[in-house]
Design a protein around this nucleic acid. Structure first.
Lengths: 345, 345
DNA sequence: GTGAAAGCGCTAACAC
DNA sequence: GTGTTAGCGCTTTCAC
């Protein structure tokens, strides 16, 4: 192993001072073109890589954004991350991704690791299990901007980017009513999360406004995973007076419903209409393909990054002016109902 | 924003020196229980978070592993990452995840960012586009251990963890032969990657040993994505003498094949047998469900982490003894054919 | 069991 | 346009 070369090494080699080397590498305006070229050539030749630890420690800027998602293994989150990366990279920020695995303890330890790594900002979509938000306040206390997305709490202390879950759920349910379905059930997610509360509310209001009375026998809460949703669908479809359509708060619940319907010999969409949520790629692969809600995840990610970058500017300005108080922003984006065969009759 | 508290602040508050505070926080054996307790209490009260930048800079250890994958949005890679995290966290390492998006340029810039962040080691699955490996040598020159997984080059300079792609492809093809399929096509991936070369070789050898002559009209190379695989399947199934089974080097190609077969009115598995590769979750959701190959991604991740951790020990020892030369290890794991309806008749 | 002092590699204010 | 100097926050020898 060759010793990693430092700014000092380059300086000695070129008979100039470390500061000049630093300035040349950072394209400082008052360094002569000749020096810059010499330094950059020497750096390349020596395989010099800046030590970000030292640089960030000294400058107080790490040019890094931490992103914490419940799981990266979901098209929705993967695309949000892509959106964040796109915008962040354009402003020379790196993005580091952590997964909470839907677990509050690991969410907390991810945030601590990011805080300790002195990231400049954090984007977070909270875990299903997360119930209190002390670990977020820790970031705020350390002066690290936080933007919450998709799964956002009601707390007014943070900037948030979320989706019009209420409106999309309303649209989805309304669509089922318009297709002539009369008894529409809902497989709902943990009411611990606002997104699922809003989806439920949209479902209920669409029913009411469509002249259908809400029936709580047609409402089941679960974790929206495959196995528990199969049980939920089984339960719903075994009712004495079963539903003729099911609006599911996740795509996995929708596919589970589809599987159960098939096993029971029900035809989809004829006997049973199904709508999912999130537009995961597999919804296009099922037979029939599933109607679902697209959440424009990439533009959600871009919006998250935009808010963070804005807040970075603010932090800098604030240090200079000693004035003002940061006001969190709350942005709600629109989704889009993707109508496929599973709900058309 | 409250000023971030430092070791100095705690020291002043407790009337001891920073060194003692540091030792107390790191559970140094020669610090008295009383002091440790006092320091830890004060740290908690002040909301102290160690500055990893400073700590890593000084100690030369970042306790961070960088993982670069083509995309985290795939069950396979997501699970490998989980395996790496599990083992790494147990040894107090953090994992930071980067995506190359199958793009060599962004793979290089990810590796540079990791090198500059002075991670202790890197796990990497190369992008499809990657053709040369200078950017890996850069890490080696900097003394950063690298373990390559799944998509591994033939270069003998790095430790690798891969799968028995040849054996699994052989098994998959043999299974189709045993089910009575006679004319078995293959949708193959970029021969730039060893995994796809090996899958092709396993396919060919199984044919030969099954007494079926290889027919190059039944072999198509593409990027294995949905759209191009639809075209490939379309081409194969429109041949004058079309295949009665298709072994696909990816699950996405398999689902594409399934869709094309349906559109052409072919029954699967009766008229056409289909086998995919990777056991992505959606393969269980199609109609019929797809036979595929499970790659035990979690244990692959654990193996990758194990190799890295071993290599860290080696680095330390090497510094002490000035002896020996690190010998890369190459580990090949077994996969498993998951037989579902799409290939049974 | 604790303190003193040096320095990891870099940047930035202040010189000139 | 470049040099001098100090210091970011931490760890780690070397003391005693």
């Amino acid at each position: 192993m060759v010793k990693k070369s430092t700014i000092q090494d380059l300086a000695k080699e070129l008979n100039i001072t470390p500061s000049t080397v630093s300035r040349a590498l950072n394209d400082h305006p008052r360094i002569s073109i000749a020096t810059k070229k010499a330094v950059q050539d020497a750096a390349k030749a020596a395989g010099y890589q800046v030590n970000q630890l030292a640089s960030s420690l000294r400058s107080g800027k790490s040019y890094t954004i931490g992103v914490v998602v419940p799981t990266a293994d979901r098209s929705f989150f993967a695309k949000v991350i892509r959106g964040i990366e796109d915008l962040a990279n354009r402003s020379n920020y790196n993005v580091i991704i952590c997964q909470s695995n839907e677990n509050m303890k690991s969410e907390r330890s991810n945030l601590e690791a990011l805080a300790q790594a002195r990231v400049d900002g954090v984007a977070l979509s909270i875990a299903k299990e997360t119930t209190d938000f002390d670990h977020l306040d820790m970031l705020t206390r350390m002066g690290i901007p936080v933007v919450l997305f998709d799964r956002t709490p009601t707390s007014p202390n943070f900037s948030t980017v979320d989706m019009d879950d209420y409106g999309c759920a309303y649209q989805a349910t309304r669509h089922l009513i318009e297709q002539g379905y009369q008894r529409i059930a809902h497989i709902a997610g943990s009411q611990n999360l606002n997104i699922y509360r809003k989806r439920l509310a949209g479902y209920k209001d669409a029913l009411t406004e469509g002249g259908i009375e809400f029936d709580d026998k047609l409402l089941i809460f679960n974790d929206l995973k495959l196995e528990s949703s199969k049980i939920a669908a089984e339960t719903l479809l075994s009712l004495p007076h079963p539903p003729d359509a099911i609006f599911c708060a996740s795509d996995l619940a929708a596919v589970a419903t589809l599987q159960v319907a098939k096993k029971k010999g029900l035809q989809v969409p004829k006997h049973l209409g199904i709508v999912g949520y999130a537009n995961e790629p597999f919804t296009a692969f099922t037979e029939p393909p599933l109607t679902t809600v697209d959440q424009h995840p990439v533009s959600m990610g871009e919006t998250v990054a935009k808010l963070l970058l804005e807040q970075f500017e603010y932090v800098v300005k604030d240090l200079n002016t000693e004035g003002g108080h940061f006001v969190p922003r709350r942005i709600t984006l629109n989704g889009q109902l993707i109508i496929r065969e599973s709900s058309i009759r």
